[in-house]
């Protein structure tokens, strides 16, 4: 069995993270190529929305990933706080930029999709609004982390913030839903419901492939980010010095 505790030390995790990052990176590229091909050439034209709906294949995975990464981030933060392991906190903070990026992509593609569908770049739809608030949460996390000079305090403070955030996310989500149904404009609801009902099997497969491509990309990128964090934070450690000497030689 895979020994988790062996890899909770930065020194032994560093080379493993390198191998995993490459593996996930390659897998992500392959899936992305397949997924994009399916999105553009295999998936049929939607009978109601024409070709424009194809942006869904990037919008929906990005939205899913943005939420999923926040949850994973909070889990790492919780682990870091409970067991006082530095690696978990490093993982949490290296996930944040990727999560924020996916949130931004989801908002951006949402706007691009919204223009032909709703006739406006932005509507205060419950999902888009929640996504926007999620972006605020990511930005707050990263801002707090970068405002604190002491890396230990930065990791622990931002970890706590992630936990507070993750408790609040469902409350925020439901309150936005509630708000939206009260102030609902009639044109909004049709689109999402319409596409889910009319989604063909091939569309679903394409969506799945694209989601995994995004997921593996997130894993690869955050692992390589955590590698540089490890080097930075452990720059005094003997193994890092040995590694650098080896590289120079």
């Amino acid at each position: 069995m895979f020994n988790l505790f062996k890899y909770s030390s930065p020194a032994s995790f560093y080379p493993l993270a390198g191998r995993l990052a490459v593996g996930f990176g390659i897998a992500s590229v392959i899936l992305l190529v397949i997924g994009l091909y399916m999105s553009f050439f295999v998936a049929p034209t939607d009978y109601k929305q024409g070709e424009g709906y194809r942006i869904m294949f990037i919008h929906v995975p990005a939205a899913w990933m943005s939420m999923w990464i926040y949850v994973v981030m909070a889990c790492f933060a919780a682990a870091g706080m409970i067991w006082n392991t530095r690696l978990s906190s490093m993982m949490a903070s290296s996930l944040a930029p990727t999560g924020a990026m996916f949130t931004f992509v989801a908002l951006w593609t949402g706007a691009l999709w919204g223009k032909p569908m709703w006739g406006a770049w932005w509507v205060w739809d419950a999902r888009l609004t929640s996504e926007l608030i999620l972006l605020f949460l990511y930005v707050g996390f990263m801002a707090l982390e970068s405002a604190i000079d002491d890396p230990r305090r930065a990791a622990r403070a931002s970890g706590l913030l992630a936990l507070v955030g993750v408790i609040n996310v469902p409350i925020i989500y439901y309150s936005v839903q509630w708000w939206n149904t009260l102030h609902q404009g009639s044109s909004i609801k049709v689109v999402d419901g319409g596409i889910e009902a009319s989604m063909s099997e091939i569309m679903l497969w394409t969506l799945l492939v694209m989601t995994f491509a995004c997921w593996f990309y997130a894993v690869a990128v955050s692992l390589s980010r955590v590698r540089s964090t490890i080097l930075e934070r452990e720059s005094d450690a003997v193994w890092v010095k040995a590694l650098l000497k080896e590289r120079k030689a």
Binding site: F136, A147, I172, W178
Partner: peptide, 26 residues
Amino acid sequence: LTLGLRGGGVLVSLLVLPLYIPVLIF
């Protein structure tokens, strides 16, 4: 969380305002 940080006042609004949203809505 922002105790003793540079620019703590601006930062605190960034952290806290999103959490205020449900109260505002209701």
